[in-house]
Design a binder for these strands. Structure first.
Lengths: 160, 160
DNA sequence: CATAAACAGGACCGAGTGGGTCCTGTTGAA
DNA sequence: TTCAACAGGACCCACTCGGTCCTGTTTATG
């Protein structure tokens, strides 16, 4: 399984989209329309990204958001961390207060660490500019955009 | 977030435990007791692992399970795939029938692929023997084993 | 041959959590 | 002064995963 949260997926979509607007401040309604993601959700994502310092916000009328750094300076890991928190496979690893019931029996205690590290490294290595489709450079607007279906990324790290 | 299913975690625990019994067939109740994981759950996990060919089963009285291959020949990825299915971050990637509502607008369509590949590679590189604690070679029995808390691996790829 | 132990493979139910919406401030340009 | 837009909560519904159980089928053992 190993699923990625939808929100994180949306975040990537929004960020990439935002990059298409150059350094211009863009409102969340605008981004919502452009991406097809419901506006309240876009707003939620942007707030989290803003808190994480990935985007900068301009309040008040004529406000909006813009990228705080270029796409190539934003690793996927940063986005995921901003939306979903620290990247690790098991709760055992980080904090893990409350301890483990099978703390004594568990044969792999703390052994997910290398796995976590590997994934973390992989996600840090890939930046957002690598996720922007070169084939559809800039803004891409198809004939129409209102067919039923699913959202942007679906976000299931495993399908099954 | 990026959480790993608990079942997959249990699977690793069970497999590592199974390796401590050499080539001997071991019953699921025995493994359940040894790992602290509830028996029905252990059975469920073992069935999946058996179907995936990671363990071999011996039916009938005096039956049980044993490893089909040594630990170092079992990558973590194989365990996860056996329990949770194909490893990928978004549903967009594999199949993804039903299409994407924002298929047309989505700026990152199909672009999770490199991320998925990276993770897949990382999980394939690590084998189960690397998750067995060398410090507690073989069977490890602490003084006591009944403190309240959580299960073996908890299994949350992100905590948050 | 009868019995029981153990796997096979489903169906099933409840809890936890994430997705999505909404509401009330606060900021700042026009 | 007004209104557009962000800030930052609270809140609810739906989905999925974890865990249990039940009914076969297989096969040592007495």
């Amino acid at each position: 399984m190993l699923r990625l949260s939808k929100l994180a997926d949306y975040a990537v979509v929004v960020l990439v989209r935002l990059s298409h607007h150059g350094g211009e401040v863009t409102t969340s309604p605008t981004l919502a329309q452009a991406t097809g993601v419901p506006e309240p959700t876009v707003a939620k994502v942007l707030k989290a990204l803003c808190a994480a310092g990935l985007v900068a916000s301009q309040r008040g009328a004529r406000g909006g958001y813009r990228l705080a750094r270029p796409l190539h300076a934003i690793p996927v890991a940063a986005v995921i961390v901003a939306i979903d928190g620290p990247i690790s496979l098991t709760a055992c690893v980080d904090g893990a207060t409350g301890g483990c019931e099978a703390q004594e029996t568990c044969p792999v205690r703390g052994r997910w660490d290398p796995v976590n590290e590997a994934i973390r490294a992989a996600l840090t290595r890939i930046t957002l500019d690598q996720m922007d489709l070169p084939s559809c450079g800039g803004v891409r607007d198809f004939d129409k955009a209102d067919r039923p279906g699913m959202m942007p990324g679906a976000a299931i790290l495993a399908a099954e």
